[in-house]
Nucleic acid binder design. Structure first.
Lengths: 193, 193
DNA sequence: GCTGGTATTGAACGATCGTTCAAGTTATGA
DNA sequence: TCATAACTTGAACGATCGTTCAATACCAGC
């Protein structure tokens, strides 16, 4: 059923791509109006403000990331391999298909300050949810004996989060894929030891 | 000798703090005019444009970072310990004293796009210089037998770069220092193995 | 077919953006 | 002391920013 009412979900997705590619400040409402084919009045009726729309795109991005993580786990024979697939896909895959190499949440906490305190803490909170998801998967990996129990799942999840942030930032700064793949292998080798 | 001519170096330093804290787009020329106590004409006579000034601040930041790295090496008994001191200081020290937790160069490549291609590649180039400096120090560490020669200095320098980027981003996203210190110890433990 | 509410339109608002430049001020050398 | 060069000033420019709102178009229920 097609309605005259604009598709909210579609608008959020298109806005996400713009914000992800260009950041909060460098994306103007006029850029968004053009991308989603809505006039300012409709956008403001739906989302309230630029900040309101941006907040929804952050949540949309995080939701999509969680779904991709679940897919990677489901497609793999073990939890740890699923994690590696996810990280590989996040770091390498984003280079061509995604709007930016860098994680949108990391990009956001890098760009924003206390001038946009609510958006900043929203991004921080969503990042912590990712870490929690990592920890849950690592618990399974420990139970299945894939990794030893020398370190707590929380500590390893923290470690993985640092690696993912660092790898994606590094991938943005440097062109070659080969070196990055090598680095990812190093990360998962160190998890077994 | 105090001249009526404004102090270029001082202006660059103050502009660096502003750009580092708020990013390129969120820092207006009027913010800078106020911080450096210059009128627009003088600034544009000295630096040409906002982009020109920003480029100089990137170079100033990189120069200061290199100097701090040298200081850390000089203050330590071994190359590897000097590196650890540098990374510790970069990640923990920046939390209170510096304008931002995150490396200004990483923040820049996260924020900017091809709309500011020259600034983007300038930041990338300066980041590569840091990696080269890491590699040179790791060569010394290998010669002194601090770390084995299983991996090339370039590969380990790449690894360190990823860690530094990741740790500083993580430090921005999460409050506690203790967890970050733990993570840094993990990094240098893995370098010996 | 008419009516009442809901959604959309696009011109317009004041604020702020990066930048320019004629006018004014200060230092220099003869 | 005065002409000239060097530097600073601050008002002003056009463009664009996020946002508003009266006018218009649309559709459901009677």
């Amino acid at each position: 059923m097609t309605t005259v009412k604009h598709d909210r979900q579609d608008a959020v997705e298109k806005a996400t791509d713009l914000f992800w590619a260009n950041g909060f400040h460098a994306t103007s409402m006029r850029n968004i109006q053009q991308a989603v084919d809505m006039r300012p009045g409709s956008i403001y009726a739906s989302f309230g403000s630029k900040e309101g729309l941006f907040k929804e795109t952050l949540q949309h991005y995080a939701r999509a990331s969680q779904a991709r993580l679940n897919d990677c786990i489901a497609a793999s024979t073990s939890p740890l391999e699923g994690l590696k697939l996810f990280i590989r896909d996040s770091v390498i895959g984003s280079r061509t298909s995604a709007p930016s190499d860098i994680c949108m949440l990391v990009k956001t906490i890098a760009e924003l300050t206390n001038d946009n305190a609510e958006l900043l803490s929203e991004a921080k909170g969503l990042l912590q949810q990712v870490e929690v998801a990592f920890a849950a998967i690592l618990v399974q990996a420990q139970e299945q004996g894939e990794i030893n129990r020398a370190k707590t799942p929380e500590r390893m999840a923290r470690y993985l989060q640092v690696q993912l942030m660092g790898l994606r930032a590094y991938a943005r700064a440097n062109e070659g894929d080969a070196q990055v793949i090598e680095l990812i292998d190093d990360v998962f080798d160190s998890l077994h030891g």
